[in-house]
Amino acid sequence: MAIVEGRFRLDGVEIPFQPGQTIMDAALAAAVYIPHLCHHPALLPHGSCRVCVVRVNGREVSSCTTPATAGLEVESETEALRALRVAILQMLFVEGNHVCPACERTGACELQAVAYHCGMLEPHFTHFFPRRELDASHPDLVLDLNRCILCERCVRASRDLDRKRVFAVAGRGLDSHLIVDSPTGRLGDSRLELTDQAAHICPVGAILLRQRAGDVGERHGFRVPIGERPYDRESISRVGDVATLVEES
């Protein structure tokens, strides 16, 4: 059967889609940016962060989990949706300990970059200042739960791409937290390796690569100065996965 291509409108622009694509998939394929955090093109949709909220037929839905259908009228870059996204981002920021000036991922952090894109100027809510664990037991990686936003990208990557199931989320509500599958619960005793995709997929600074003198490639850390990192130079709406996908296709 021939693939039938449909079209919907995103902020007035015609976006083509293939059957089975979500609004997010189709928008990314057409190089149109919709803010997102838990969504990753290589992973199954999760729909947990809600930052990709769009308005479809009078309802707010997450664009990463809503199938594209012909003739939809989708709104994304409006003031009402921007305000909604900022509120979601503010809650993510106050729920954890996101100290950008002290974080190695600053300038390359998707949470920060999406907040820049949406124009978040202040946290608005009362900071929660939770006490969370830092796990430095792994020889190549550091797991800092202070920065974890529970997007489950590492959970999905470890399960679906690496076939290891190193990570999971346990607990409910405010007690929800990332756990590691190992006899001790520590990352150093798990099967996670530097070559695993789960080690490189964290949108924030919760999973960081350790550095040693002479490391090259991705393990550059602070060697790229603050101010010259990817989202310092350009908005994530132009240099994030939306740009990578276009390059690949």
């Binding site: 149109v32 940016y33 870059e77 409006t78 003031e79 921007r82 894109h117 949406c118 124009g119 908005s235 709406s237 132009r238």
Partner: peptide, 9 residues
Amino acid sequence: ATEATSDAI
């Protein structure tokens, strides 16, 4: 790509 338009942000 996200240039502020009349009704946008």
